Computed example of a mutant assay.
Amino acid sequence: MRSPIWRLLLIPSTYGVLVWSGLLSLLAFDFIAVDVSATAYYVYLYVIICFVLSNALISRLFLAIDLEGLGRQIEVNGLDMLLFVVSTLIGLAGLGLYILDFSANFGGVYQFFYIFLTNPLEIRAAAADSTSFGFQISYFSWLSVFYCVLLLATGYGKSMGWKIFLALLGVFEFALNLLFIDRTRPTILFVICALGFVACRFGRFRHPLRFLVAVFLGPLVIFFAQALYTGKYDASDGLLNNFMVYILGGFGYFSSLLSDVIPDYSFARTFYPVAKIFEVLGLMREVPPQILEFRDIPFLTNVGTFLEPFVSDGGLMFLLVGVPSLAVTLDLFALLALRMRSIPGLFIWANFILIALLSFFVPKYNATHTYLFIAIFLGFQLMRASRSIEVRG
Results as ranks from 00 to 15, higher is better:
N119V: 11
V149Y: 01
F31A: 07
P219Y: 06
I90K: 00
P309A: 03
L45N: 08
H369L: 03
T39N: 05
F318V: 06
R387P: 00
T14P: 01
A175W: 14
P120E: 14
V213H: 00
C200G: 10
S59T: 15
D129E: 09
G282M: 04
V191I: 14
L372T: 11
G379H: 08
L209N: 12
G134H: 03
I374S: 05
R285I: 04
L57R: 15
S236R: 12
D237F: 15
D296V: 14
S256V: 10
G157C: 14
L320H: 00
P12M: 00
Q226M: 13
E293I: 12
E122V: 14
A28Y: 15
V36T: 15
D260C: 04
V221N: 07
A40I: 15
F116N: 13
G170E: 10
I115Y: 13
I32Y: 07
E390H: 06
L179G: 09
A38G: 14
I99L: 02
L357V: 15
F112G: 14
L150I: 14
P363T: 14
V43A: 02
Q111Y: 08
G71N: 01
H207G: 07
E308W: 02
I297D: 06
I353Y: 01
G155C: 09
F140P: 01
A128P: 11
G78H: 03
I297C: 02
Q290G: 07
I123L: 05
S256C: 11
F112S: 09
L358Q: 10
M81G: 08
V198C: 04
F174M: 08
S54F: 06
D80R: 01
L292T: 09
F278H: 12
N55F: 11
I11Y: 01
I343L: 01
A56L: 15
L121Y: 06
S256T: 14
R384A: 01
F211H: 04
R124D: 12
L319T: 12
I48H: 02
I222G: 02
A225T: 13
R295T: 09
L67K: 13
F172T: 11
F360H: 10
G238I: 00
A64F: 11
Y272L: 00
